[in-house]
Design a protein around this nucleic acid. Structure first.
Length: 426
RNA sequence: GGAGAGAUGGCCGAGAGGCCGAAGGCGCGCCCCUGCUAAGGGCGUAUGGGCCAAAAGCCCAUCGAGGGUUCGAAUCCCUCUCUCUCCGCCA
């Protein structure tokens, strides 16, 4: 959520900044609602003050044994008028709040302008694209050939967009998770967390998935109304919801491995082949909660932490600065990491690292006590995939494949694979 | 699933229709006193919001959440959430 002060006093300037990302701010409606809100709030508070004053007077009169009847008569209709005013105020505030909750974050000045994916800017590139003296296959053929990756059986068990892995490939998938967690905890200073995979609506509102993106989520029926997490960002970032953090405890750096569940509504013909886009996938997620003045430096280091995973695995990638039109709803600035996939002859997204500034913090009421002012102020939140495990597995399969369909195991993972250096058809 | 108890400020804890944004204590901050080992005194110490150019000031809201009763609710009534104890069940 944006600072309501922006839509109260700097409405036009805010509209200009939001237009950069293709969002049209309805300034006429907001301006009118704000004027109405102000009027109703003033009126309501006057009536409340009147009620408080007369209630006090009645109490004092009764305490002195005086007749309170005339005082009571004077406020006879006050309750009704107050109730009416409060109802109108609530209605306007709700309407305004609905609009406010649907406004995306303002892009940082360093974010390149653009409409979509094609306007993203390459920041740097690491490694050369893998060369083969045979025609490289994609992970679906490779996994199928090994008999360790099976989409048909997964479709029988559940449906489309699920995968069944088995044997050494399933172990490699698990090894990746252990490797990433060990790297981030022991070398990058993150605190490992185990978190709930089911969350309530408040948590999803806090990080910005609700109310606008309900169709992307899997919702559980029943009395609880819980949702399956689309990313560990939700439980990890919500650790600091409604919390005032003392300065000495900043920055907070959390890492968790979780499954992620996404309905992928609206992506029907996209990436239908293989493990790239699944309803369920594993991800190791990095979250940082930092002082506002530190958040842009933190975005660079956090992105670097995710890059380290790719470098240790010796997977070629590039870093893209997302343009204004391609950024997520809550983000002020995002870098995507794209890994080279020989099967597609393309760079594909494997991590997304974002600075949300105070956008999430405001919804979360996540604050720190600023020693300079002594007051609670909003923190800045960041997160990034470190990395998407399924896609990392795909990248390893495709980049480390041999002519015979076997797959070499990257050096960094061999200790997690019981010393094995190769996955072959046996 | 059954039975019971509870939720008050940074923490502990009182309060049982008006004098309560809330006693008292602890902690924390500032000031004073005293130098002889560890104390004494004073003051202050929640959050969000409105009016205002801003400050000051005034006002509103908040005692787990939401509704209700009342001129007036931390206090009475209803619903929900969470915590604890006992029993059952369970990985």
């Amino acid at each position: 959520m944006l600072d309501p002060r922006l839509t109260r006093t700097e409405l036009e300037q805010t509209a200009v900044q939001l237009a950069r990302r293709g969002f049209r701010l309805d300034t006429a409606t907001i301006g009118a609602l704000e004027a109405r809100r102000k009027e109703l709030q003033t009126q309501t508070q006057h009536l409340q003050a009147e009620r408080n004053a007369s209630a006090k007077a009645i109490g004092q009169a009764k305490a002195k044994g005086q007749d309170a009847a005339p005082l009571l008569a004077a406020v006879a209709d006050l309750g009704d008028r107050l109730k009416e005013a409060e109802a109108q105020l609530t209605a306007v505030q709700d309407e305004l709040n609905d609009i406010l909750m649907g406004i995306p974050n303002i892009p940082h000045t360093s974010v390149p302008d653009g409409k979509g994916e094609g306007d993203n800017r390459e920041v740097r590139r690491w490694g050369d694209t893998t060369q083969f003296d045979f025609t490289p296959r994609d992970h679906v053929d490779l996994g199928g050939g090994l008999g360790m990756l099976d989409f048909e059986t997964a479709a029988k068990i559940t449906g489309a967009r699920f995968a069944l892995m088995s044997g050494p490939l399933a172990r490699l998938h698990r090894a990746l998770i252990q490797f990433m967690l060990d790297l981030h905890t022991s070398e990058h200073g993150y605190t490992e967390c185990y978190v709930p995979y089911l969350v309530n609506a408040d948590s999803l509102r806090g990080t910005g998935q609700l109310p606008k993106f309900a169709e992307d989520l899997f919702a559980l029926g029943g009395e609880h109304g819980y949702y399956l997490i689309p990313t560990a960002e939700v439980p990890l970032t919500n650790i600091v919801r409604d919390v005032i953090i003392e300065d000495v405890y900043l920055p907070r750096k959390y890492v968790a491995h979780t499954p992620c569940f996404r309905s992928e509504a609206g992506s029907y013909g996209k990436d239908t082949r293989g493990m790239i886009r699944q309803h369920q996938f594993e991800k190791v997620e990095l979250v940082q909660v930092v002082r506002p003045q530190d958040s842009y430096a933190a975005l660079e280091t956090l992105t670097g932490h995710a890059e380290t995973v790719l470098q240790r695995l010796e997977l070629p990638y590039r870093v893209m600065a997302l343009c204004t039109g391609d950024m997520g709803f809550a983000s002020a600035k995002t870098y995507d990491l794209e890994v080279w996939l020989p099967g597609q002859q393309k760079y594909r997204e494997i991590s997304s690292c974002s600075n949300f500034e105070d956008f999430q913090a405001r919804r979360l009421m996540a604050r720190w006590r600023n020693p300079a002012t002594g007051k609670p102020e909003l923190v800045h939140t960041l997160n990034g995939s470190g990395l998407a495990v399924g896609r990392t597995l795909v990248a390893i399969m495709e980049n480390y494949q041999q002519a015979d369909g076997s797959i070499r195991i990257p050096q960094a993972l061999q200790s997690y694979m019981g010393g094995k250096a190769m996955i072959g058809p046996d």
